[in-house]
Every structure is written in structure tokens, then in C-alpha cells.
Amino acid sequence: MRLSYPADIKVIQVPCTGRVDILHLLNAIEDGADGVYVAGCLEGECHYIEGNLKARRKVEYVKKTLTELGIEPERVEMYNLSSAQGARFAEIASEMVGKIRELGPTPVKSTHAA
């Protein structure tokens, strides 16, 4: 299809979004990522029955934590699409990058021990 999507995104593959952990998302934010999104299979289409539903709950948990910390919860999102939807993947990537650009750089700055 030779579709292009923003180069700002680093893709990390997992066997199923059920493998994604709250800590993976938090650690990404902690390490300075401006945003993180999870691209899971369509709801009801998970090969492992509910991996994508679990991932959504974890994303919601992290959103709550970020809100508590005064950080925009929109920096973490969950999307659902099938592996056959290449065009949608590119669209989501652009959508997420656009949203993060609007929000601006992460307020989580790297600090060094005094």
C-alpha cells in the first residue's frame, strides 16, 4: 500500500495488546514520551478473547493517574483496528501525532541528581 505515517512514532510490537502493562505506559511517560497509544485489534476480535479489552482498562487507569498528576490524559490513548486496516493505522498515527502536537511537549522533563 506504501502508506506513509508520521516518523515521530516508535512502534513497539507485542503479541497481543493484553501484554501491554500499566507500567509500560507509565514508564514511557516517565522517560519523556510526549504521548503513547495502544493499537489493538477490534473489540470482539481478540484472538485471546479479551486482550484488547484489558488493554483499554489499563489505558483508562493510566489516564486517571495522569489526571491526578495534572498531566493531560489525552497523552495516552487506546485505538482498535484490524491488521487488514493499513490505511486506518496511518490515519490513527496522524491523528495521534496531531493531537500531541496540539498539546505540546510533555511536561515531564528529565531531571538529574543534584
Binding site: L23, L26, E30, L69, P107, V108, T111, A113
Partner: peptide, 18 residues
């Protein structure tokens, strides 16, 4: 414990304190 540690580090980094 790990989640709290990460959340606290995020908070402190946001604040700019280590």
C-alpha cells in the same frame, strides 16, 4: 509498588525536581 514509584517519578519530573 512499581506503579507508585513510576507515578511519583513522573510527578517530580513534571515539577522539575529529582
Amino acid at each position: 509498588v512499581e506503579i507508585l514509584a513510576s507515578s511519583m517519578k513522573i510527578a517530580r519530573k513534571k515539577q522539575g525536581t529529582h
